[in-house]
């Protein structure tokens, strides 16, 4: 009969292999056939607080514009902005109101408007219309987001948010 330690030694490489396979499958699961699916998948990953999942929908050349500010690289977005987007998604609901798609070949655009509702930390309700421009690019068999631009119909909220963010 195989000892527990010997069994463990045998099984460990198998587990490691299975783990790698599953990890690979998780990454490959982000194969996105339709341009809008990249956008929706990204938002769904934010809502799940799935940092790696959200990044998997983004192209390495991503540039983000928001409320007159920018993240010039995907690394800058991932470090400084993505956590805030996950926090925001956790306390708000984004209801898709309208969407238009266009472009051709490997480069497409997805224009979306969302009604965003929720509550700010100070208890005030969030109820705004978020406008989103997403440019997606097909690389291989999958679309990835190369540009996002968000703006809102509530100017005071933008100003308040930027004041908070720029505070030292």
């Amino acid at each position: 009969m195989m000892s527990r330690s010997a069994w463990s030694e045998r099984v460990r490489p198998l587990l490691a292999t299975a783990s790698l396979a599953l990890a690979g499958a998780a990454v490959c699961a982000q194969s996105v056939k339709l341009p809008a699916d990249a956008v929706d998948g990204f938002h769904a990953a934010l809502k799940r607080k799935d940092t790696g999942g959200a990044l998997s929908y983004l192209d390495r050349g991503l540039v983000v514009f928001e409320f007159g500010k920018m993240d010039a690289t995907i690394e800058a977005y991932a470090l400084s902005h993505l956590p805030g987007d996950i926090d925001m998604a956790a306390v708000t609901d984004w209801s898709l109101q309208a969407r238009r798609l266009g472009g051709g070949g490997d480069d497409r655009w997805v224009l979306s408007t969302y009604r965003v509702t929720g509550k700010r930390p100070d208890g005030k309700p969030i109820d705004e219309v978020m406008l989103e421009t997403a440019i997606v690019r097909r690389v291989g068999d999958s679309f990835r987001i190369v540009h996002l631009h968000w703006s809102s119909d509530k100017g005071d909220l933008q100003t308040w948010g930027q004041t908070q963010r720029s505070a030292p």
């Binding site: 607080k49 993240d71 470090l79 956590p83 805030g84 956790a90 930390p121």
Partner: peptide
């Protein structure tokens, strides 16, 4: 710059809310 040099520079972002994580 890399992300490490972004501290204190105004960046894009939504309204600040309590950290979810």
């Amino acid at each position: 710059a890399g992300p490490a040099r972004l501290d204190g520079i105004q960046i894009a972002g939504h309204d600040p809310v309590d950290p979810a994580l």
